[in-house]
Design a protein around this nucleic acid. Structure first.
Lengths: 221, 221
DNA sequence: CCTACCGATCGGTAGG
DNA sequence: CCTACCGATCGGTAGG
């Protein structure tokens, strides 16, 4: 949808390309049009949007980070805004898949399911390659209302498995607060970690998960 | 420091000012140079920075919101960045004062002190005129390292009263998690509310406070 | 605080 | 995907 229906034929056979004097650096001689360029643009954008913010990042920054010229990102995405949305959507789809995988072999006891959900959430937010979801969390002002609606559906899918778990803990008396508010407060506690967590120092994700579980559902009895 | 040492004399006596044909709207005939214009710029900036973000807000937007021409904000602030920092610093100084006032007649029991701190935090974050602190929380990427250092000191002052309270709750067994991590998670849960709370619907700040207290220190026994 | 203005940067596009 | 380019906008300033 962001990509033209038909692409021009590959540059192969273009004599100028073979004689190119000092081309920009390429990883290999044959990686052009290998279909990964779009992903590279997406990854570069996620990284820069997270570090500097959407409006502080120029499409030229993104192009340079992906080893392209300034106009080339627009071959893959029809606008800067479409690129931002693509980062967010990709982040959500990946998060949902990873969450489903994490729950696949989970026990039914809500306390352990919550631990898996929290641990997975931290991993999505703070683990390697974790730029996409923070961008979604912190740049939502910059997308259109329609895009926000579409994302809200994916977020609903992501939150769906949390609700029965929290309800179960509430029913068991381990979560005293109103479940609706508790959910919002819990996501806040987790999401905010993207602002302060430093992978190279401090607690591990397991320690973080343990602290969160203790904070939310204690171990009083 | 952001304002020139000496100001030119007031416009009084300037004949052109008296003959001004159709001036931009003024609230009164005598409010020029009344010293409030700087505050109006600051408030307009806080409002716009919060709603649209720092980089998505132009100094022209701010000028218009304050009823000025495009160049005039620079009479009060030497740059857009200085204006952003002024919003953040003003927000922190105000928050510290309000917190001190809230604690002035507080009981010594940690549970009730935490309730006061949380309730006051929500008020600072979500109450009327609450644009300054959200800007500080969500636009910190856009200030310089030196400014971040200065703000960190004010944030330290703000967090200072929380630490003995959390330590007390930990010692009493009401807060099981590591205190350092608990503090970060708690502030996350509270600060994230700026993203979803809607004053016109949903819970009141008292209900929010109650839910937060239940979530963090339960009421198990 | 306004007027008039400047240089720089930016998103985006035509054509190949 | 590059080259060459455009119109718009932006932060900021001189001078009054």
């Amino acid at each position: 949808m962001e990509r033209p229906v038909a692409r021009s034929s590959p540059a192969a056979g273009d004599p100028a390309a073979e004689r190119r004097p000092r081309g920009r650096p390429r990883k290999t001689l044959h990686d052009r049009d290998d279909g990964n360029r779009r992903q590279e643009v997406l990854r570069a954008a996620a990284r820069l949007f997270r570090r500097k913010g959407f409006h502080a990042t120029s499409t030229r920054d993104i192009a340079a980070a992906a080893g392209m010229r300034s106009g080339s990102p627009f071959y893959h995405f029809k606008s800067k805004g479409a690129l931002l949305y693509a980062v967010m959507e990709e982040g959500m789809r990946s998060a949902i898949l990873r969450q489903q995988a994490a729950l696949a072999d989970a026990p039914a006891v809500p306390q352990e399911r919550l631990r898996l959900l929290v641990r997975n959430h931290f991993d999505i937010l703070l683990g390697p390659g974790s730029d996409f979801i923070p961008v979604m969390l912190y740049e939502s002002r910059s997308i259109t209302a329609r895009q926000r609606t579409l994302l809200a559906q994916l977020q609903g899918d992501y939150e769906a498995p949390w609700l029965p778990v929290l309800d179960g803990l509430h029913a068991a008396g381990r979560l005293r607060a109103d479940v609706k508010l508790a959910r919002l407060l819990i996501f806040g506690a987790l999401n905010w970690s993207a602002q302060w967590y430093d992978r190279r120092k401090g607690a591990s994700l397991d320690e973080l998960t343990g602290a969160a579980l203790q904070l939310f559902i204690g171990d009083c009895p």
